[in-house]
């Protein structure tokens, strides 16, 4: 209610302010996903985590786009951040709708590389994904005053690629099954090797996405859940 009252005051005043946007991959991408995050004691260090952000836009309460950051840009989340994405002038108001488009044109939408370690075993991976995803995000309290600014952070969650469920809220982060996918034991887990692993046999749960039948499809689907807002803020994805 506090924010809404503030909004009414601002609308009465009119004017323009600045919407500033940054992005951050948090410690999980910049440094490591430690073993205590994984249910099976594995850990991950990313070498690269590049996200193609084709569009970041702000909408008012009527669904009208009031500002966006312009064309596509690539961000490697392993670079220490938060990284500024841009700033745009918008009408002073209280906002509750931000859209993020992660798209594959040009290049992959998400490309990751790193090392997965489980106990004494470890393997490298380098995966590129082409799926485009529109995230509809609801900032908790984005109020842009006249002649001043407020900010939004596009937060990327690097642990999501290792979840063992697509819909169940008690899904855990696991690595052993992905490490075991390195069928030729050459120390490199390829997408083709992930594609050879059956999800039904693995016991991972897919909920409504029963067309996800291989580990490659599973991880690919998870790349479409990495976008968040202002840390832990959830974004809606229409798959």
């Amino acid at each position: 209610m506090r924010a809404s009252s503030c909004c009414l005051l601002i609308v009465a005043c009119g004017g323009e302010g600045a919407w500033t946007v940054e992005t951050w991959g948090e410690e999980y991408i910049e440094q490591a996903i430690p073993a205590d995050v994984f249910a099976d004691g594995c850990s991950v260090v990313y070498d690269a985590f590049v996200v193609s952000m084709a569009e970041v836009a702000l909408f008012d309460g009527d669904g009208t786009r009031v500002g966006d950051l312009g064309g596509p840009a690539f961000y490697d989340m392993v670079v220490p951040g938060p990284t500024p994405m841009g700033e745009v002038g918008v009408p002073a108001d209280h906002y509750s709708s931000v859209e993020l488009l992660v798209a594959s044109d040009p290049g992959p939408s998400v490309e990751v590389a790193g090392t997965l370690t489980c106990g004494a075993g470890s393997a490298h991976f380098q995966w590129a994904f082409d799926e485009s995803t529109m995230y509809g995000c609801v900032p908790a309290d984005l109020t842009i005053p006249p002649n001043a600014s407020d900010s939004t952070q596009i937060t990327i969650h690097g642990d999501h690629l290792f979840y063992d469920g697509l819909e169940n809220q008690d899904a855990t982060v696991r690595g052993a099954e992905i490490l075991a996918a390195d069928a030729d034991a050459d120390g490199e887990i390829t997408l083709d090797e992930l594609d050879a692993v059956s999800i039904p046999a693995l016991g991972y749960e897919v909920g409504q996405f029963s067309d996800v039948l291989t580990l490659r499809q599973f991880v690919s689907h998870l790349t479409r859940t990495i976008g968040h807002i202002d840390g832990e803020g959830e974004c809606r994805v229409d798959f």
Binding site: S4, H94, S96, V138, A171, G207, E234, R236
Partner: peptide, 14 residues
């Protein structure tokens, strides 16, 4: 934002 009803957001599923 005025509504007492908020959407339920799942994690990690959407």
């Amino acid at each position: 934002a005025l509504s007492p009803i908020q959407a339920a957001y799942a994690h990690p599923g959407h």
